[in-house]
Nucleic acid binder design. Structure first.
Lengths: 243, 243
DNA sequence: ATTATAATACTTGTATACAAGTATACTCGT
DNA sequence: ACGAGTATACTTGTATACAAGTATTATAAT
């Protein structure tokens, strides 16, 4: 029925994805970006009609999104929860928590290979900056942290990551797209900070690691406000349309 | 086709559950108990036939179990991962991690209502012991920790809990059933330890909390060995059947 | 005997159909 | 005008059907 605009989620990341995964990613982006407002009630049938698919992939998507705390499955309809500033902080709480845990494991093992991998990702990030590819930059940013987390081979920490990653990815994606053209110094600061992170890992220095983690948080936190502002703008724009 | 024995998961906990949830809980118990061995390849069709349901609830169950790291969804068939001693340790890593985090929040807020709630649960546990109701005891044990974790209203911490809880619950359930009749002193030790936990919360004393958490871990760890032993017994019994 | 190829039986992912239950709206009685 | 009760249109959960793809097995050729 209504294709309602282009897709927010990078098509190239969905090359091998099933319909269910596509819908999941797209809905997630719409919710996090604020395009679908908090409080909206989603119905399987309507979504199926909107995306021109059957209810099966839609159901799948809703289950996943409910697990990510983006919607709340109720008797009739799924209520969009969305994410507020509070949720963003909470996600970063979790990231701080697990990355701190991970670091404690990393100091006990050989991290040479990991460092190599991280440096590779760092160079990729720089290329992404050079070619002004916000999506690629976001991808590598997320990959950076994923690589660290996976390095300790801890299935339940990985599980936590798998559950927080999608929201984080979408959030960073939107945030990067918004900032990429304006704030070049922000980007280099992010890269610098990732370098610091690698340093912390290689020297096994807790203080540097904590410093880097908090720096990273602040970097993101700064962007959060802008994202919310733009959401507000979106919302008020819609409000005006209605009138 | 094959109902293969009774259900492991308490029927009374499934009063309002859908077929999908029932299948999920039952499969989870079978996997964790070792009744379904690691390495087994599950097929949606076979499971559907076995449980006399359609593929829809089975698919749902497999998605959930994959998220809990109990199976691995592959091209063809779902490979049972199961849980080894390593996984149990890892689950408790996570619980330690999040409960430590939670405690840091709890010291900052008024916990009077929480303490009341926890004491209620504690009394329930004692009744469960009195009437030798292992399942109820397990239920209250899990509820105890859930209550603490939910108290800080942290959506992503809650999310982590939601994802680890089912496995933990099943594990504790099996463990309790195995030990309930033999080791009465174990049970009172568990209760004592929970009292200690409440103490830690009310006095906002970190040291007591850590002590209690580790104690709790040791309690479980002790039981783990037995559970594995019994799994081994199960396995070897099956081996012999085959011959 | 071994290898290449083709047929078959199984797999998942999606679409559709059906059943049971719930909210909304409407009608009828007062 | 207003409330009780019914009809209707929606909701989810499950079952079934279909399509596309993959492993396996059997057959045929060398």
């Amino acid at each position: 029925m209504n294709e309602s605009g282009d897709s927010l989620y990078p098509a190239k990341w969905l090359s091998k994805a099933s319909t269910g995964e596509r819908v999941t990613c797209e809905l997630r982006m719409r919710i996090i970006s604020g395009l679908i407002e908090s409080g909206t009630i989603l119905s399987e049938n309507k979504l199926a009609a909107e995306y021109n698919v059957s209810r099966s992939p839609i159901r799948e998507a809703l289950k996943v999104l409910a697990n990510e705390n983006l919607i709340r499955l109720e008797r009739m309809g799924a209520v969009v929860t969305g994410i507020t500033e509070k949720e963003v902080e909470e996600i970063y709480d979790v990231r701080l928590l697990i990355e701190t845990f991970v670091f404690e494991r990393l100091v006990k093992i050989d991290t040479a290979e990991l460092e190599r991998e991280l440096n590779k990702i760092l160079e990729m990030m720089q290329i992404a900056i050079k070619y002004k590819d916000a999506d690629e930059f976001a991808f590598q940013d997320v990959l950076f942290h994923e690589t660290i987390i996976r390095a300790i081979n801890h299935s339940y920490i990985t599980m936590i990551w798998n559950n927080t990653k999608p929201v984080m990815e979408s959030f960073i994606l939107l945030s990067m797209r918004m900032h990429f053209n304006e704030k070049y110094d922000d980007l280099s600061r992010i890269v610098k900070n990732h370098e610091l992170y690698i340093d912390a890992i290689s020297t096994k220095n807790r203080d540097i690691m904590i410093q880097s983690l908090h720096q990273n948080f602040d970097d993101v936190q700064g962007k959060v406000d802008d994202l919310w502002m733009s959401q507000q703008m979106l919302s008020s724009a819609r409000e005006q349309e209605k009138e």
